[in-house]
Design a protein around this nucleic acid. Structure first.
Lengths: 346, 346
DNA sequence: TTGTAGGCGTTATCAC
DNA sequence: GTGATAACGCCTACAA
């Protein structure tokens, strides 16, 4: 029933050479070590027999699994599929495959997945789950495993990373609101233990200062996860003590979507009663009602660049650690408009 | 620099036993072969040294990689992340991991990914890419590799599969439209070489017949992929020879979204001028403008059930092939309404 | 109950 | 340039 599997030995026999020679001929790296004649003979034999090298055996011997561990919070968050695709597409060009692990933001789960991947001898990690402080990263370093961070950065070690310039992005969002005439601007901030949450919050404060506006602490709510329901809760808090606020800057699109829900509950119209800006420009976010004004960055490219950095490290590139920032871009859509009461003098 | 790696031999030495004994103690399956005393000693040694079994070596020896190949069209299609998560969650419970491959609907790419996965000795395949006729499936069977199909089914072999009852689903959609008073109903059909496209089209025809309505061939357009732009093209065709049509049944949500775009181009309002129903109830589709009326089914469960079936086969379950259909559910939202002109007599 | 030995398929390191 | 040999880390008859 099950097809008999062709091994290197079979190819060697068929070509009339020693297995070691067949191995050399089959491996592009070492092909120049054998005579052109035997190489073609071996290749022909391999093709004829339908030889497929056993990646497992090769891994055992070479201690390279050509496998990358990818940790993300949740594949269901539309931000991640494009990143993962970028990563996989770039990795596969170099013969690597990705093992995807979802952590759901749970540290223990993250640890388990991380360990399982180590057991499978991944050659490196691409993490979109980094917390600012992260003992796991220290483990990876100790094991000599290359790590690259995506979307987020960490503070305790210096890791290669690919992310968007969060401060600059949120500043673009706030400027946009200000230019529309908004003065009392609320903020739904993200978790402060991850770089995206922290940096976007800092960026918000800086942008407000720069615009000569004061931040009312009543109008700042902190979500402890980048999730729709957290965004709704925060928006509710803000709406409760509304205090003349006419716009909300959310730390990401999920929180903004939650904000939409809270507005609807409160019978408020977006953008007529309240402008909303998000961050990420998730797929399909432009099809919401209203289409969300947000900060875009090239998700797919985050993946490809991260893969690139990782492959460089795996191949032993020494040099300085590369920290890559991709440029944010403001996408003006239907969720932002001038405040209802006309320009409120400052 | 790199942490020295702990092997079975190290554990054995530490515990003062032979590696073979350590192996038996460490493996739950064979633990009862060693004395309880030594077992605990070995376990302690393993814990102390931080032993992590080398999955690669184990795979080579046992010829089980505990790895599953998963082929999907495109991770960016929001239908797939929940399926993949279901699959991974269920698989990980049994110590399996998934290798995800995106085919972009390209047969050649599918072939390549399939082969790469074979080289890595996956223990089975979960495919969401099945065409009705599919030589690759024959290959997998010949190799004795378990396969389970997700979302789609194939016609040339009998494979375990998990999918939604497409005929029934589309019939619910058409009934809904009919009950609203629609009589001239258009159809954006999907590719006819995959089961979802074919069965939903057949279901449409059957449902129309059942409702005593005739299908105007002018009002049927075939998309050659389940993609937004294809949906838009098809909708344009239908709108061009509109012929009093007041509703469109799309073979999936992506096509329905394309239909939205075409309606907007044409200055038509949904649902006032045209009702639209989709299929799948993709994540976030309820947040569109207007929220899409569609046919839902439990995506996550498609993944978990598929994983379950696959694991059963891998573990050697013989028995008859299981074909699992999950029940569809009509989700009535804002994209459907009675036709503008009131009830047109039949 | 535990030890011995061999091998899974490949490649690295020697010789020749 | 090619062949022989050993080893990667683990598991499993078989023997003791």
């Amino acid at each position: 029933m099950a097809e008999e599997v062709v091994t290197l030995k079979d190819v060697a026999r068929q070509a009339g050479v020693h297995p070691a020679t067949a191995s050399r001929a089959l491996n592009p790296e070492t092909r120049l070590l054998v005579s052109e004649d035997t190489a073609t003979r071996v290749l022909a034999a391999a093709a004829q027999l339908g030889y497929r090298p056993n990646a497992v055996a090769r891994s055992l011997r070479t201690r390279r699994s050509h496998t990358i561990g990818v940790l993300i919070p949740d594949l269901n968050n539309p931000l991640f599929p494009p990143i993962v695709r970028g990563l996989e597409d770039r990795l596969s060009a170099d013969g690597y495959v990705a093992l995807i692990g979802n952590t759901d933001g749970d540290e223990q789960r993250e640890r388990i997945v991380f360990e399982q991947m180590r057991a499978r001898h991944v050659d490196g990690y691409a993490l979109a789950t980094a917390h600012l402080q992260n003992p796991m990263l220290a483990d990876a370093v100790r094991a000599g495993l290359p790590v690259v961070l995506m979307n987020r950065t960490a503070e305790d070690y210096s890791f290669p990373s690919v992310s968007v310039d969060n401060e600059r992005g949120i500043q673009m969002a706030v400027s946009h609101l200000v230019s529309l005439g908004h003065r009392r601007i609320a903020c739904i901030a993200g978790p402060q233990d991850v770089s995206t949450g922290l940096n976007r919050y800092r960026g918000f404060l800086a942008a407000m200062r720069e615009a000569g506006l004061t931040v009312d602490p009543e109008l700042v709510a902190f979500a402890d996860a980048f999730a729709i329901d957290k965004g709704r809760e925060c928006a509710r808090q803000i709406l409760a003590k509304r205090a003349g606020c006419t716009a909300v800057a959310a730390a990401n699109d999920m929180l903004a979507v939650g904000c939409y829900a809270a507005l609807e509950e409160a019978g408020l119209d977006c953008p007529a009663d309240m402008s909303v800006v998000g961050f990420n420009d998730m797929p399909f976010i432009d099809m919401l009602r209203p289409p969300l004004t947000t900060i875009a960055f090239p998700h797919y490219q985050v993946g490809t660049e991260a893969a690139q950095l990782l492959i460089e490290r795996i191949n032993g590139a020494e040099g300085p650690v590369k920290i890559l920032y991709l440029a944010p871009q403001l996408k003006i859509r239907g969720s932002t408009a001038p405040p209802a009461g006309g320009d409120s003098a400052k």
